[in-house]
Structure formats: C-alpha cells, structure tokens
Amino acid sequence: MKETSKERVEQLVDVIMKKCLWQFHSRTWDREKQNENIILKTTQILCDEPVVKETPEEKCYWVDAVWLANAYKEKFPWVTEIDKEDLKQIMRELKERLDFLLITGSLNAELTDPLY
C-alpha cells in the first residue's frame, strides 16, 4: 500500500533522529542553520541539482547531506521513483517537521540561551 505524504515525512524524520547528530546543536540559531542548509543540500542531491560547497562550512553541510541522501535512496525506493517536484514538497514538509520537533515545539529550555 502506498504511504501518504505524512507517513513518508515521518520515515525521513526517523532516519535523521536515529542516525544523525547534526540536528541537535545546542542553540536555536544553530539548529535553524543546520536544518536549513543540510535539508537544502540533501534535496539538491536527490534532485540532481548543483550543490554549492566552496567554503569549509558549506562543505561540512554537504558531507552530512550526501550521507543522508544516500541513506534515503537506500532505505526508501520511492525517493528515486517519484516526481522531483513531489519530492521537493516532501522535503519542504520534512524541514517544517524538523523545525517543529527541534526548535519551535522543542521543550529544551537551553535553546534560547544567548551564549554557548
């Protein structure tokens, strides 16, 4: 049976939560940057679009994105089968879900600490 878009997003979230560490940086501004850059680059890789990786910072986002894109392709055949625009939509929803779980809906009281 074909999964709904929501179920697919949850599958993608589960891989990040179980296997990755980059989403758990300790401050809100860090998490926003990590989610933004790594999900953007993962989407570009999955959609065969060019990825900017000129600076050390971009390169670091890129290696996590490459790993994630490979994991998605390996675990979920639908990732390579669906239309690229549909995939982009799912990735946008993934980013929104991550932002909620890790930032806007997070119960972690340290996220708003002004210092490291």
């Binding site: 560490l21 940086h25 300790s26 860090d30 050390p56 670091c60 290696v63 996590d64 490291y116």
Partner: peptide, 28 residues
C-alpha cells in the same frame, strides 16, 4: 581544517567557539 567532535556534551563549546572565531566547521 575540520573539528571532528565525538563527545558533544563535554566539548561542543570549544568547537562552537572555534567555528565562530576561526571559521573551522564542526562535524559531529
């Protein structure tokens, strides 16, 4: 060129500062 971070609990602070002050990225 790169900070490879293992125990973020005890040492993420110095990685974060190295990133801000010297532009060295942090890879957990």
């Amino acid at each position: 060129h790169l900070n490879v971070l293992e125990c973020a609990r005890s040492a993420e602070y110095i990685c974060n500062e190295l990133r801000v002050r010297y532009g060295i990225p942090r890879l957990d």
